[in-house]
């Protein structure tokens, strides 16, 4: 099944019984669309072990995600593997703030669902504008409170999620832990917001992945001055220890090649 959530964002349900029976909040899968494709990681947003399906939400940012988004209902993927990565940390009887930005919002859904069982969950979800809002209802179902922020103020609070987070903390709200998922810049900004409050902050990193299984080292990040593997040691890390600038730098490693590949794909599809 496939559903358009916003411009360039699609929700896809895939039949993958082996993955669905073992999936846990915070884990991801890797996918290849075709034999010549790249292997890319996608967060597990939802799943049903009894029915054997998993759900992902993709943002069409480049070649592979466009190819994935153009798959029609009933088509198969060349390769799908998982789950990979560690499940989200467990907490009890705490107040937790979850911050999701853009396509990071669906990624916080399973975490909110898992943590809301034994904790109070406040979700801050941020978008560019009112048109790009997605997963608002789903997040609402698994949160005690939802705060919406848009960059242009067309819905909810005006400003970034990091601004909304700062306001909330400045207003005196107490939180035992914060989770942030979204673009690296946003996660960096949010971790700076919580640092002075010394609130334990987790970020789910999205570094470039090749194998997803600890065999290539492409996904390496510096956390607390040590080199770690996002796919094996993460994807969740202590946000205050992450070397954000290095992550942002490494995410841009293949900018030129990605543009070239995308241009070629668009040209070919147009012909």
């Amino acid at each position: 099944m496939k559903r358009q959530l916003a411009s360039g964002v699609k929700e896809i349900i895939i039949f993958a019984p082996m993955v669905s029976r073992a999936a846990k909040a915070g884990q991801f899968i890797t996918i290849m669309t075709d034999e010549k494709g790249e292997r890319v990681p996608m967060t597990l947003v939802d799943w049903s072990a009894t029915e054997g399906w998993i759900k992902i939400v993709i943002s069409e940012v480049g070649l592979t995600t466009l190819k994935l988004g153009s798959k029609e209902v009933g088509e198969t993927l060349y390769y799908l593997a998982g789950p990979f990565g560690n499940p989200v940390s467990e907490l009890n009887s705490s107040t937790i703030i979850l911050v999701g930005g853009g396509v990071g919002v669906p990624a916080i859904y399973p975490i909110a669902r898992s943590l809301s069982r034994n904790n109070t969950v406040i979700s801050i979800i941020g978008y560019k504008n009112a048109n790009s809002i997605l997963y608002e209802r789903e997040i609402g179902e698994v949160s005690d409170e939802v705060i919406i922020a848009t960059d242009d103020g067309s819905k909810g609070q005006k400003g970034f999620t990091s601004d909304a987070l700062r306001e909330l903390l400045d207003s005196g709200r107490k939180a035992d832990a914060v989770w942030v998922i979204g673009p690296a810049m946003m996660m960096k900004a949010c971790s700076e917001v919580t640092r002075p409050y010394a609130i334990k902050t987790f970020a789910s990193l999205n570094s470039i992945t090749v194998c997803g299984s600890g065999m290539c080292g492409a996904c390496r990040v510096s956390v607390g001055g040590k080199t770690k593997y996002t796919c094996m040691d993460g994807p969740e890390f202590d946000a205050h220890e992450v070397n954000w600038d290095e992550l942002i730098l490494r995410l841009g490693a293949y900018k030129e090649e990605e543009k070239r590949a995308l241009g070629r794909y668009i040209l070919r599809s147009a012909n």
């Binding site: 010549k36 090749v210 194998c211 490693a253 090649e257 590949a261 070629r264």
Partner: peptide, 19 residues
Amino acid sequence: TRANLMKGYRFPEYDTPLR
């Protein structure tokens, strides 16, 4: 892995880049 398994040496025919 990029070169052999993902055939990066045939980028852009194959999608995985290698520099």
